[in-house]
Amino acid sequence: MKLPQPLIHGRLVSRYKRFFADLVLDDGREITAHCPNPGAMLGVKAPGQGAWVSWSDDPKRKLAYTLQMVEQGDALVGINTLLPNRLVAEALAEDLIPELSGYATIRPEVKFAEASRVDFLLTHPDRPPCWLEVKNCHFSRTPGLAEFPDCKAERSTRHLGDLAAQVAHGDRAVVLFVVQREDCDAFQACADLDPAFARGLDAAAKAGVEVLVYDCAMGMETVRVARRIAWRGSVAGN
């Protein structure tokens, strides 16, 4: 998908109140940008880290700038949690995820379980429906290893149980982790930060929920779902 243009480079000063980030742009301007990521953002919020923001001339916006990517070492890391669902929708439409190809209809945001919505419901008259949940991942503490979550993720843990229930009903269910970086070859659930989620992911997989992990090709103009990487289970502490 195409990113808003142009992207402007600067350095982080601070990220605060979940949705705000102060930066100093390369031309010396000091700005406050919208931060479209309510999570902990471990590893991608340190003062001095290089960052890229987009700019909008929409007069209805309170903040003209939006934080899009942060540099972590040599990696370009997407922090916008609104992108993964859009990236997956585009990849499904273009048949870029082989494990999820061949469905006749793709419906976003479908209510299921008692109090949940699944990100996508894939259907075909000749096969069971597929309930697809998408999770954003940016976190990496060890070179080559992506991890999720970077903080407590109770809602995500509940979603795993909901997916397992759909499998028990005879449907197909998939959790897809979208890693918004291209320097990782493997993925693990982060049990030291959220042991409940790690246990839940392992339990869901044993119940028949499929676990897919795809990284992204990160660029200044476009970001796209790129290649499948390996899932190794939990980091520790199951």
Rank of each mutant, 00 (worst) to 15 (best):
A104N: 03
N80M: 06
L132S: 06
I97P: 00
A93F: 03
S56I: 07
K60I: 03
R127I: 10
G144F: 11
P149A: 03
A173H: 04
P59R: 05
V134N: 00
Y65V: 10
L83H: 02
Q68S: 02
R127C: 10
E71A: 15
L176R: 13
R117N: 15
V88G: 00
D58L: 01
I97K: 02
R86M: 04
G161K: 13
A164F: 06
V167P: 06
L83F: 07
G170D: 06
E133Q: 15
E133F: 07
V53L: 10
C151E: 08
Q72H: 11
W131E: 01
W55L: 09
A168L: 11
A104Q: 06
R86A: 15
D171S: 08
R172L: 02
D95N: 03
T123Y: 05
M69S: 02
H159C: 04
A64G: 14
F148A: 10
E154C: 04
V88T: 00
L63N: 01
Y65Q: 03
L96C: 03
P149R: 10
G78N: 12
H169C: 14
D126E: 15
N136M: 05
V77C: 00
S140M: 08
T66I: 09
W52T: 13
D126H: 12
A153N: 05
L163V: 06
D57H: 07
A46T: 14
L67S: 01
S140R: 11
F112I: 05
S54G: 14
D119A: 04
A115R: 15
H169Y: 06
L87K: 00
T81L: 03
L42P: 00
P47I: 09
A104G: 05
A89D: 09
R155P: 05
E114K: 14
L176N: 07
K62N: 12
W131G: 01
K135V: 05
